[in-house]
């Protein structure tokens, strides 16, 4: 025992340290102690009734655990070729890829929403409803005539932004007709001062374009979030 004490009890509690700790008992049960420690532990068990009692109880517990029954399943779990094929080609077709796609879509829509918000503020500040104009274009019925006039001048919407300087005259025409925000948008943005002065009807039309876009995007985002949540729910049930 004196050996034990010198080996294990250098601390302030020589009496307690001499006893076997739970880890040592557990390892001894599994025959997993190194030979030297094992000899010391067995010597201690032989001499210490307290530790021996603990050890015997632990041993009986482990023996009981060893004796717990194994259960035979009611059926076998071997995979049929069909199961194996389905499992390998599209694993969890229902939930995983679907959710991934939805997640990316939601991200994209959120980014678009952010863009439109930022864009609206930028263009509001500069006074023009420019980028929203294409969206709002179909709305005003009185835009038909000026549109026609503008295209007659050989400057359709695509060509217009590329040549801002010579098109200034066109712009004035358009502004004077007041409703041509559908086609000549970029130029109008540059002529914002004129526009805000003379074109009282334009800002409302532009703002509603932004709003429509934002509303649509928000709805889409909501639907996507609901869809993702629904998929998760279904997967959980599954």
């Amino acid at each position: 025992m004196s050996d034990d004490r010198t080996q294990r009890g250098p601390g302030s509690e020589p009496e307690r340290a001499r006893h076997l700790d739970l880890d040592a008992m557990s390892l001894l049960l599994d025959d997993a102690l190194p030979p030297a420690e094992r000899a010391a532990a067995e010597a201690h068990l032989a001499a210490c009734p307290d530790c021996r009692e603990d050890y015997e109880e632990l041993r009986a517990t482990v023996r009981l655990l060893h004796g717990l029954p194994q259960y035979a399943p009611r059926r076998s779990f071997t995979l049929t070729p069909e199961q194996a094929r389905l499992a390998v080609s599209p694993p969890r077709r229902l939930s995983w890829p679907g959710e991934g796609v939805l997640r990316w879509a939601a991200l994209a829509v959120a980014a678009l929403l952010l863009l439109t918000t930022v864009g609206q503020q930028t263009f509001d500040r500069s006074g023009g409803p420019a980028p929203s104009a294409p969206i709002a274009a179909p709305a005003p019925p009185q835009a038909a005539q000026p549109d026609f006039a503008a295209s007659e001048q050989g400057a359709p919407e695509a060509a217009a932004p590329q040549a801002p300087a010579p098109a200034a005259a066109d712009a004035e025409d358009a502004v004077s007709t007041e409703a041509n925000h559908g086609t000549e948008s970029m130029r109008k943005a540059s002529e914002s001062v004129d526009e805000t002065r003379s074109g009282g009807a334009i800002p409302p039309g532009g703002v509603s374009g932004w709003r429509i876009a934002q509303l649509g995007l928000t709805l889409a985002l909501l639907w996507l979030i609901v869809g993702i949540a629904g998929l998760r729910w279904m997967r959980r049930l599954h």
Binding site: Q70, Y71, A72, P73, S76, F77, T78, L79, A84
Partner: peptide
């Protein structure tokens, strides 16, 4: 798949028991 199913047969009882 046959080889895999041999593994299934060999270990399904253990796997099932711990799951149970």
């Amino acid at each position: 798949l046959d080889a895999f199913n041999l593994l299934v047969l060999r270990h399904e009882r253990t796997v099932f028991t711990i799951c149970l």
